[in-house]
Every structure is written in structure tokens, then in C-alpha cells.
Computed example of a mutant assay.
Amino acid sequence: MSAALPALTAPTGRRVRVLPGVYAPQHDTHLLLRALAREAIRPGADVIDLGTGSGLLAVAAARRGANVTAVDVARRAVLTARLNALIARRRVAVHRGDLAAPVPGRTYDLVISNPPYVPSPHGPPPRRGSARAWDAGPDGRAVVDRICEAAPSLLRAGGVLLMVHSGLCGTEKTLRRLAEHGLSATVSDVAHVPFGPVVLSRMSWLHGRDLLDRRADREELVVVRAEQR
């Protein structure tokens, strides 16, 4: 373990290592961890974490006795997740790739995801760099919609999707999209948190596109819970 690699305190109180350029655990991570803690995960349940980042959520599921697969497009995120699983002494299969592409044909009892969701004035999501952990196209839904579309084929009967995102990219749109794909979806948790530096840097643009109320002084985060009927 490199002494130069900073250790951060996660919302669980546990220490995690995060390589430069990898999304570090933040308010959205905390909210999704809280939702994960409410799920009845039986030992041996199959779980996949899409866009694992630091691997914190994947490790949390592994601590509950689940068989966990974690995927991220970023090479540094894959290395970080593997490192944190090693430190925690938990078995997590970490793959590099786009959503569930590295594990074709597999199904799961639980799908968890903290995808990129911040609307961006810079066009399509970037293909490299740290910004691809948050920039998600002009409406913030470039990855969220893909997860909504993929979830039915990833979930077993009775399986659950837990996904966190900002209200900026449209909570009702997510609920409708999941329903269109045959899932029963609700908002299971909500938090209002201070605007982060990315949102603050594009406030005028967000206001101009009517994606953010000019009176708002905090960002709404939601956890969407969807179940395979």
C-alpha cells in the first residue's frame, strides 16, 4: 500500500483509499449506503455495483455476505475498488467495462448504482478524465436512462435496483422510464445537501435551462428503488 495514497473516512466510518481522479465517497454515496442497509440481503445473494468508483458500496454488500461484482469504465477506479476490497478482506470481482458488458448474460438479486448524473453544458459525457464520474450530457440522463433500460434484463424475479441521482436530472422521468420497462419504482430516500463545486460552477447555465429553481439553495438527491415484478 502506498503511503502517498490518501485515506478518506467514508460515511460508514471506515477508511477507504481513493486514487487521484477517482470519485470519492460523498453525500450520494452515504444516501445509497443507507438504502443498501435497509435491504434484506441473504448470504450468497448476487449483487452488481455499476460504476463502482472507490468500491465502497461493493465492499458494503460483500460485508453482508453477498457475492459481489463491481464494474467501472475507469482503470483507476477498478484499481481503487480492488485495493479497498483487499484492505477490507472481502471478495469482490472487479471488472473494467461499460455497465454490465464485462459479465454478459448474468442476472442479479440486487443492482446498485451511483451513476454520473450532473447536467453538463459540455455536450456528451467525456470519454476520459475525472469529469466522466459526474458529467452526464445536457439533461444529466445519459447513463441514468441506460441503467433504466438495462435493469430488467439484469434483475431476477423479485430483484431490486437501487440507484441514486440528483433531482436535477428528473426524478419523475426516472420513475416513468423504469415503469415503461416493466419495473415497479418508487423514491425510497431523499436528502437535501449543499451544492457541490461542479453544480456551483454551472449555476447560470442550469438556471437558463430551467433545470434548477433560482430560489433553490440546496441540491436534492434521491434514491430510486425499483423491483422486478
Score class of each variant (00 low, 15 high):
Pro6Arg: 10
Thr186Gln: 08
His207Glu: 08
Val223Glu: 01
Gly182Pro: 07
Ala131Arg: 08
Thr12Met: 14
Trp134Glu: 03
Thr174Lys: 03
Val68Pro: 03
Pro125Ser: 14
Val198Pro: 04
Leu175Gly: 05
His207Ala: 07
Ala7Thr: 15
Ala133His: 02
Met163Ser: 10
Ser54Ile: 04
Arg209Cys: 09
Ala37Tyr: 07
Pro20Glu: 11
Leu83Gln: 13
Val199Tyr: 02
Tyr23Leu: 15
Val111Ile: 12
Leu83Ile: 10
Ala185His: 01
Thr52Ser: 08
Leu161Pro: 01
Pro43Thr: 14
Ala35Ser: 13
Arg38Pro: 13
Arg89Met: 12
Leu33His: 04
Pro25Phe: 00
Glu219Pro: 05
Val68Trp: 03
Gly105Arg: 06
Glu149Trp: 06
Met163Arg: 06
Ala136Ile: 10
Leu183Lys: 05
Leu57Gly: 05
Ala101Met: 04
Leu200Ser: 15
Glu219Ala: 07
Leu154Met: 03
Val92Ala: 14
Arg82Gly: 12
Pro119Gln: 10
Phe195Gln: 01
Ala70Leu: 03
Ser184Gly: 10
Ala45Val: 15
Leu36Thr: 10
Ala93Asp: 14
Ala62Asn: 11
Leu31His: 05
Arg127Ile: 12
Pro115Phe: 09
Ala66Gln: 10
Gly51His: 01
Ala101Ile: 11
Ala226Ile: 00
Leu178Met: 14
Leu178Lys: 05
Ala85Arg: 09
Leu155Ile: 13
Asp217Ile: 14
Met163Lys: 03
Leu183Ile: 09
Ala131His: 01
Ala24Arg: 11
Val22Trp: 00
Lys173Met: 03
Ser130Glu: 09
Thr69Pro: 05
Asp135Gly: 00
Arg63Ser: 15
Ala70Pro: 04
Arg177Gly: 07
Arg14Leu: 09
Cys148Lys: 02
His207Gln: 10
Ile112His: 02
Arg42Phe: 10
Gly167Glu: 07
His192Pro: 05
Arg75Pro: 12
Arg14Pro: 04
Tyr23Ile: 06
Tyr108Val: 11
Leu8Pro: 07
Leu57Cys: 12
Ala85Trp: 01
Tyr117Pro: 01
Asp49Asn: 04
Asp98Met: 04
Ala93Lys: 09
Tyr117His: 12
Gln26Trp: 12
Pro152Ala: 08
Ala45Ser: 14
Val92Gly: 02
Leu110His: 01
Pro115Ser: 08
Gly53Ile: 10
Arg229Lys: 08
Val103Tyr: 04
Pro138Arg: 01
Thr9Glu: 13
Arg17His: 09
Val118Gly: 00
Asp46Glu: 13
Gly167Cys: 06
Leu33Arg: 02
Pro104Gln: 12
Arg106Asn: 08
Leu99Trp: 03
Leu178Thr: 00
Asp145His: 04
Ile48Trp: 00
Asp109His: 11
Leu221Gly: 02
Met163Leu: 15
Leu221Ile: 06
Ile48Leu: 06
Arg38Lys: 12
Arg17Cys: 09
Val118His: 01
Pro119Ser: 13
Pro116Arg: 09
Pro197Lys: 00
Arg209Trp: 13
Ala3Phe: 07
Val59Trp: 01
Tyr117Phe: 14
Arg106Ala: 12
Thr12Lys: 08
Leu32Asp: 05
Leu79Val: 15
Thr52Asp: 02
Ala142Asp: 03
Glu149Met: 02
Ser184Lys: 15
Glu39Trp: 15
Ser201Tyr: 06
Ala74Tyr: 02
Leu33Gly: 11
His207Gly: 02
Gly44Glu: 13
Leu161Ile: 02
Asn84Ala: 10
